[in-house]
Every structure is written in C-alpha cells, then in structure tokens.
Design a protein around this nucleic acid. Structure first.
Lengths: 157, 157
DNA sequence: CTTTTGATTGAGCAATGTGCCCTATCCGGG
DNA sequence: CCCGGATAGGGCACATTGCTCAATCAAAAG
C-alpha cells in the first residue's frame, strides 16, 4: 500500500473544496512547489487513492431519483453465482457481501416505485435467492463525504 | 432539472473508461467538435450531474479498510437532531433516512474492529437513539458503478 | 411555406497549464 | 559522515483551455 503524510492529506482536503483547481493553484495554496504537488498527485493516482469516474456521476441528475437498499438472503454456497447474476442488472449500482443476518446488501437506483418492484422481482428470480428485504431511502441525510475524516487526519495525523 | 440526450450519455460513458481524457480527445472519439463537447460538459456540471470530489477518494487507500452499515432505530420526533449529532462523527461517511424497519442506514468506515465498536458506541450514546444493528461489509462484491446503466441508456434511449 | 430558435461547427487567438528536464538544497537514516 | 529521497526553482516545447465569431443545420413555431 502506501502511507500518507500530512501533506498528502492537505492536498486531498484542498481538492475537496476546489476539485477543479490546477496543479499550480494547489501548489500556491499549500505553499509547495509545483514539482512537489505534481509528484504527489502522481503517486496518489498510482497507489489507487482515486476511484472510478462512475462515482462522480449523480444518479438523481441522470434520471434515477430513487435509491433503495435491498437485503438479500441467499443459499451461501451459491453466493458467487448469484453475484454474477446480479451484476447483470444495471440498476444495481453496488453490492456488499455482509456479515450478519443478511448475506448481501444491494444498492439500487430506480426511476419510480414500479421500477423498484420490477428490480426486486428480478433479484428474487435468481436461483438460490431465498428472500429480500427492501428499504427505500427517503433521503441522503448525510451526503457521502470524506472531508471530515481528512480534516481530523490533518489536525492530528 | 435537465434531460439528457444520447450524446450526453455517450459523453459520460466515454469518461467512465477514460476519466483523464481531454476535451479534444473526447471530441475526437465521439466525432463531435470541441466546442460542442465543451458546451455539453459545462452544462452537465451546471445541472449537478457531477458530485463532490469526496466520492473520488478511496477510503481503503486512505487507511480505512473496513466498511460497515449500521441500521439505527430512533425516536422519530428527534430524527433531525440526531442526524445533526451523527454528522459530527467523521467516520460516518454517509447516512440515509429510510422507510422500513430502520429509520437510518448509516455507512461507516473504520480502521479496525475496535474502531467500529467505538463508533457504534458513539452513535448509541446519542439521545433518542434506541438501538443499532451493525453489519460489517465483507467486501464490495459489485463495486459502485453506473456504466451498465449508461450503456443501456445509450442503446435504448 | 417561412421564420425563428437553439445546437453545432470550424476557425482562430491569447493565456495558461502540463509534462518533462536538470541542478542545488535539505533532512533523516544507515 | 555519507547517501537517498524529497523538495525547490528554473526552464522549455507543446497541448489544452476559454473565449469569440460567423456560418450552417434541424427542428419547432408561426
């Protein structure tokens, strides 16, 4: 892996508030040389600090205003095959294998309630899926964020 | 809001596989003029198609290898106040208000199991929180993705 | 059918940023 | 004490950006 120092954190933190800023601007703000910032950014990319572009796209703006979480209970021996099958459903934007009562936590986006109902049906139709429990997300009360974590790391790390 | 046409979708889709590509490169690949691509990109940004920079950072690389989902049951009248309080916990990277058995679904990243235990305790300590149910994510079996959705939209839309 | 509106295009231009080079300096670990 | 890694500062060729303008095109409106 790769361990971060305070400078890396500050760099990432600055990008949180000013994602469009250029390397030169970043260097100025942090009081570093352009070379340094460029090198560190390169390293951050190489070491996998940045995720796929997908994550930058807002599903709501895309026309999928509804998000739901579906807990899926499966016959565990068939888990791998089921995951493959679920991966073919485009509305499933993410899925985690879970420890706990449910085996999978699937995150779904959809256009409306009917859409959700249909997708749930598709999941249930997979061989080895025993049961699903659907919960509709009423709102993202805390929007995805890492800034607070970075802030704390910058202060204490 | 704003409605997308096929070109917007193709643009986003192209960026999924080649996030670093320049406007010129994009224009070439899509067979459009640079001006058009630039204009459309601008519109996409303005209309909120892109999310915060946070989402581009990989928590695992950041030193938080564990993700957990915590279902929180609360006294609903105090929901707003509780959310405010939860927002002060940096390890909570996201939270959804839910319809269904649980009131909140909180997404947490942590360094290890002890860390998770501590965070869960912090959540439980909030006034009005009745109960939590923690599930540890064993793995992201389907990594977050919108590409399949975009692909379908490009074909049928 | 004609008009109008908006999107697209090609061209051009100044300013900026990028990628890459090299060297000197600084600091901590061996 | 010396060495390696990181940093700063300078520089250079090139690509990209942001912006403007006029011409073209298509579809919707009159």
């Amino acid at each position: 892996m790769h361990s971060f120092d305070r400078t890396d954190i500050q760099l990432l933190r600055a990008l949180c508030t000013e994602p469009r800023s250029t390397v030169v601007a970043l260097a100025q703000r942090l009081g570093l040389s352009r070379n340094t910032v460029q090198a560190r950014m390169g390293r951050l990319e190489e070491t996998g600090t940045f995720l796929a572009f997908d994550r930058r796209i807002n599903p709501v703006a895309l026309g999928y205003p509804l998000t739901a979480f579906i807990e899926v209970h499966v016959q565990q021996k068939r888990l791998a095959r089921i995951v493959d099958e679920l991966a073919r459903i485009p509305e499933i934007v993410q899925a985690h294998g879970m420890s706990g009562p449910a085996d999978l936590l699937v995150r779904v986006v959809c256009r409306d309630a009917d859409d959700l109902f249909r997708i749930d049906g598709t999941i249930l139709a997979c061989e080895g899926v025993d049961r699903t429990e659907t919960s509709l997300a009423m709102g993202e009360v805390i929007p995805f964020r890492l800034a607070p974590l970075l802030d704390r790391a910058a202060r204490s790390g």
